[in-house]
Design a protein around this nucleic acid. Structure first.
Lengths: 243, 243
DNA sequence: CGATCAGTTGAGAATGGTCAAATTCGGTGG
DNA sequence: CCACCGAATTTGACCATTCTCAACTGATCG
């Protein structure tokens, strides 16, 4: 089985050196390749026995709807991220996942994961690490919503996305291509779309970041980092760790 | 090893029927019993190789501090909950945990958990479930902060705590004893302590819920549930599941 | 019996929301 | 190539939720 290094492999390798068995098991997660159009809902809140996916190509977002029709985006997923891993063990899925762009993803059943854990313990640790990292991002997002101003939220959000994309080889310190609309940002940051627009303008006028025509450009990276109080520690991605 | 059923055992059993081996392994997690005074910080953000704890008695809270000295409480822990499980695999811990009351907890090392996973796979699944459930609560909390008004946040928060405590046998439909101050609520809900006070007064005047002298009393449970848009699905606690 | 900490209340300010209307832009059909 | 459409973005005016500051009450504790 000779596949090019998948984004997930790349990400996990940044945490732990994977053995041959690990890589084979991981490769087995990548049978059942699927592709979905932008806007398609892969995972439905309230669904029973939902399987998970590994995102290979494109962007997705996970969210919850409220009774009044409002939406809160919990996180965006980029290549190498799991979709729906959290509630693979739940009776009913607690959130939905939708393709933001056209995406390519591998479907993974709950049994694949649990069996894989039994045969490749080091991989299990790596997947646990990835899940912990996802949770750490959700936690940081929560802090963002609870205690930061609209401007800091936006700055922090763009910096986090930049850091995550760098890890999978998309984008660099100067910026990244970003298919999100201002409505996506609003639903993620707990703001109105109108205010998102104002915040983006202000950050642009301050000479910190630009978000135009589907590209985020960091103008003053350090200034932005300082404004956001951004610290990459919670992403835990400073070179491989063995244990 | 014949110990009375610990709150964690009780909680996990609500998810999966544990075998003898599982229970023994679980019991081994409960060596290294510690006790801490109210206010003690058990887990420090930024610390390396921090161990985790299982809370047996009392309340704790996990939080992050911001550069400007503000605090965001991510979650409260009640008996049966893990403390610091998320970053047991991280180089540096991404959050702090502090005892709200005097607490009793068992210290668990990263190796205990990983070795335990190898010998008791069903227990591993149960712990993964518990971790997923913790994450689901953080996600619901995030939705709370992003898209709900102060009043709905408070209502939702009190209902969730009530549901969690019922699962471990503390409190019931009429209410529960609650050692939190209004400052705790403020830091958890992303509000000022002043506004927390006003919101509580309003909920009391509406005849929905009372929080006085360390006790939360549900007056109109259904009305409160409707106001909050509270749905227990994400807690996934409707009777045991085998698989 | 001060001291301290949690809770309570009021007045004014600020951040961010709502509503409504323009403007830009990428596509699409003629 | 051009007219047109819908979606995304932009801006203004006004409004509301929540914050901040400040003062006061009440309980607890040495």
């Amino acid at each position: 089985m000779q596949m090019l290094q998948s984004p997930l492999t790349r990400k996990l390798s940044a945490f732990v050196a994977l053995s041959g068995t690990d890589l084979e098991t991981l490769a087995r997660f990548h049978r059942r390749r699927r592709s979905f159009l932008a806007g398609h809902e892969l995972i439905h809140e309230g669904q029973k026995n939902q399987s998970a996916f590994i995102l290979a190509e494109g962007w997705a977002c996970s969210y919850k709807m409220l009774p009044d029709g409002e939406r809160q985006i919990v996180d965006f997923q980029v290549p190498g991220d799991f979709l729906g891993l959290r509630s693979v063990l739940f009776r009913t899925t607690d959130h939905s996942v939708e393709a933001v762009t056209r995406i390519e993803a591998s479907e993974v059943l709950a049994t694949d994961i649990l069996d894989g854990f039994a045969t490749a313990p080091r991989l299990a640790t790596a997947v646990l690490w990835a899940a912990s990292r996802d949770e750490a991002m959700v936690v940081e997002h929560l802090v963002n919503l609870g205690r930061r101003s609209a401007e800091m939220r936006m700055a922090h959000f763009l910096l986090e996305l930049g850091a995550r994309l760098k890890l999978v080889g998309i984008g660099d310190k100067t910026g990244f291509d970003c298919p999100l609309t201002q409505y996506h940002l609003a639903d993620a940051l707990g703001l109105s779309a109108v205010h998102v627009n104002r915040v983006l303008r202000h950050l642009r006028e301050e000479g910190l970041v630009k978000f135009q025509k589907g590209r985020v450009s960091f103008i003053d990276f350090d200034g932005l980092t300082a404004l956001a109080g951004f610290d990459t520690d919670y992403l835990d991605q400073d070179g491989p760790l063995l244990r």
